[in-house]
Structure formats: C-alpha cells, structure tokens
Computed example of a mutant assay.
Amino acid sequence: MNTYLPPNRQTNGSNGKFMKVYGESTLIIKPDRSTVQLGVEVRNLELSVAQQESSRVIQLITDSLFELGISPSNIQTSEYTILPIYDYVDGNQQFKGYQITHMLSLTIENIEQTGVVIDMAVRNGANRILNIQFTVKHIDAYYQHTLQKALENARTKAQVIAQTMRLSLDPIPAQITELTVPPPPMPFQTFSEVGIAHAQSTPVQPGNIEIEAKVEVKFYYSS
C-alpha cells in the first residue's frame, strides 16, 4: 500500500471538509511468456554414478532446449542437491545410497512452446516438472495503465458526488492511497514424477491474467 500527498497548499476555503472515494479498474490480458522449473532426480548407491547420470540427463535436456531455440540466457540452474538416503528396518538405520536433484529454471519467450518444451525435456530424461507460471513481459506498463484508469474512476465518483450534493470540489486530490500492487505470475500446475511418466502429451492452456488496481482518494470540498 502506497500513499501519496501533494505539497502543502490552500484548500480554497474547504475548512478541512473532505470526502473519500474509491476508484478501481480491471484489465484482462493474455500472457505472452512462461517460466518453468524442470530437471531430474537420480538415486544410486554410488554417489559418482548418481552424479554422472544426473549430468548426462541435464546435458541431454539442455541440448534439446537449444534445438528448440531457447536462449542460453533463459536457462539457469535453480537447484542442485545431494542427499544421503536411509531406510529403517526393525528400528535399524540402513544406508540406501544417494539422491541428486538437479533443476533448471527456464523462461520461455514464445508461450506456445511451453507444452513442447515440457514434452521434449521429459523425452530426454526429465522426471521433475515444477511451478509453471504465466505472465507478460511488460506487466508494470499494464499495471500503470490500469492504475491510471482507477484514478480516473475515483475522480469521476468525486465529481458526481459534488455535483449531486451541490458542493464545490477541489479538483486536486489531498491524498491518494494505492491499495494494490502489480500481480505476480499466474501459477499453472505442478507435475509429479508419476504424473509425467504416464503423460502422452502436455496440453497447456495459459488462460488470461487479470490486472486490478484500486485506490483511495481524498478530496477537499466546500459548500
């Protein structure tokens, strides 16, 4: 929440009387890019074998992404963990090997490629697909446009109230409070290892993004 105050000035004889109005606006747009985390989880009794298998699969996935035209700058490692695995039998701890999780974070500029990217990664050994999100490249610009419309909506409400009640409205707001912030990316779905193992294809429907702006505006008036 952000509040904006104009410089100190005379209030045209309002004697401190003011009204508060709320303005709002909503813009519905289609997302134009997506982000996804994908990678591989490998288990083996020998750490070196698990590391080699993890590296092999990630290289295959990365090469396939390059073939699809994904820029290297849009691919980065988001997670690399090595964990020992233990099991308990009759109350006794037994070492079962190591688990390596290697995840990549991708930004897909052509949103229509999202399903193709997931399918290609799975065919090349990916067994973890997480946090698919959809957004727009210049979301701040869309939000600023929506915020402008919300301010206009608030001003119109104040003018209608003043005209109806036969009041003299100071057109310069005394205080503006922004009640919303730009929306985060829209989550889509998280795939489990079992889910993607049985999937024939990955249909992706990004839907729409709703950008909302709300403001509280204080206007001085006189009768």
Rank of each mutant, 00 (worst) to 15 (best):
M1H: 12
V40Q: 07
R9Q: 09
T35C: 03
Q205N: 15
N127F: 06
E53M: 09
T3C: 12
S201I: 07
Y98N: 11
K17T: 12
I129A: 04
A158R: 00
L130M: 14
Y88L: 14
Q99W: 06
T81F: 09
Q52V: 13
F188A: 11
L147E: 00
I161Q: 05
I29A: 02
Q10A: 11
V160D: 11
P187N: 08
L65Q: 03
V160M: 09
Q148L: 15
I161S: 03
Y88Q: 12
I58F: 03
K17Y: 13
Y4R: 08
D87N: 14
A213S: 15
A141S: 09
R33G: 02
M165H: 09
M19G: 10
S223M: 15
G69K: 03
S34E: 00
G207K: 09
G16P: 02
T62F: 08
D119E: 13
T146M: 02
G13I: 07
S168L: 08
N208W: 03
F18H: 05
L151I: 08
M19L: 15
P31Y: 01
I176K: 01
R33W: 03
P185H: 06
Q59V: 04
Q59E: 10
R33T: 04
L106Q: 07
A213N: 14
A162Q: 04
V117R: 01
N124Q: 07
G195D: 12
F191G: 01
D119K: 13
L27Q: 01
T114A: 05
Q159V: 02
N44C: 13
Y142K: 00
I108E: 01
P185S: 08
A199G: 10
Q99S: 12
Q205R: 08
L45C: 11
Q10Y: 05
Q113T: 00
A213K: 05
S192Y: 11
N44Q: 15
V57C: 04
I85N: 05
K17I: 12
I100S: 01
S48M: 10
M165T: 08
A174G: 14
G13F: 10
L167P: 03
Q163D: 13
P72V: 08
E46I: 13
S168C: 04
M103Y: 05
T156R: 03
D87P: 02
I176E: 01
V215W: 01
